[in-house]
Amino acid sequence: MVAPEDDPRRVPRLAGTTPSAGSGRFSHSDRTGPVLGRSGKVLRYRVAVERGSGADVGSFADGVHEALVGPGSWVDGGRLRLRQVPGATGHDFTVYLATPRTAGRMCAAVAVDIRVEGKPYTSCRGPGRVIINLERWRTSVPHYVRAGTPLAVYRQYVVNHEVGHELGHRHERCPAPGRPAPVMMQQTLFLHGCTPNPWPYLDGRRYAGPRR
């Protein structure tokens, strides 16, 4: 059982320190998940956690599933379905949970600089790779925390944002102050008057903002 102080549905961030680096090698979940979505092409994804990060691959897989199953996730459009497959199985993309240093290296390898003030801060996507920064997975971001937004909401956002890039979506802007932030807005860095929102679909309809 998860203690209340460690339940991402209840707290805005987890206590304790985040390892800055791990082994650089990954353990993959051996789970085969259900098909998510009602219609469209099935994209298969794997889930992997860096060894030495202190994170559990099963728990991370649960978090990724919660983000992608919705309601409100990318599968709600009816044009694609998603399914987790084991690490040794053919796949379309992999969702990695990596320590900041490893995430920084993986993102730099696809020409994405995730540093803020010189430190690996954000997450990123490269072809076939969704790379989630462990520090953000554990501690969210200051503006989410100040608003008391549960960590689970940030996790849903960061998965749907980076998977959105894998699906070909680009960054968007806040449509108006007080409106929900589009999932493709860089909510890790700012909200610009919008409110936190982890979903690409709201009330069954695609919700988007102006292109950056």
Rank of each mutant, 00 (worst) to 15 (best):
I114Y: 12
V163D: 02
E117R: 15
P150R: 08
S53D: 05
P100V: 00
R79G: 14
A111L: 13
V116H: 14
A108D: 09
P120F: 02
G52I: 02
H143M: 10
S73V: 01
Q156S: 08
V130D: 09
I114A: 14
R155K: 07
L97A: 06
E66A: 06
R83E: 13
R136K: 15
S123Q: 13
P100R: 04
L68C: 06
F60Q: 02
F93D: 01
H161I: 07
L97Q: 05
Y121D: 15
G90Q: 15
V145G: 09
G63L: 04
D62C: 00
L151P: 07
L134Q: 07
E135C: 09
P127C: 04
D92S: 02
V110W: 06
V141P: 10
V85D: 10
A98N: 06
V64H: 02
W137E: 07
T122M: 13
T139G: 15
E117K: 14
G72C: 08
A108I: 01
H143W: 07
R155V: 02
V158D: 14
S73F: 00
V159G: 08
D113F: 07
E166N: 04
V75Y: 08
L167Q: 12
A147F: 03
P150G: 11
V159I: 13
G78T: 15
D92R: 00
V75E: 10
E162K: 06
R51W: 03
V69S: 12
Y157F: 12
W74E: 12
Y144D: 14
P142I: 10
G63I: 07
R138S: 13
G104W: 06
D92L: 01
A108T: 03
E162D: 14
H169L: 15
L167C: 12
F93T: 03
A103K: 00
F60M: 03
L167F: 10
A88H: 12
P100A: 08
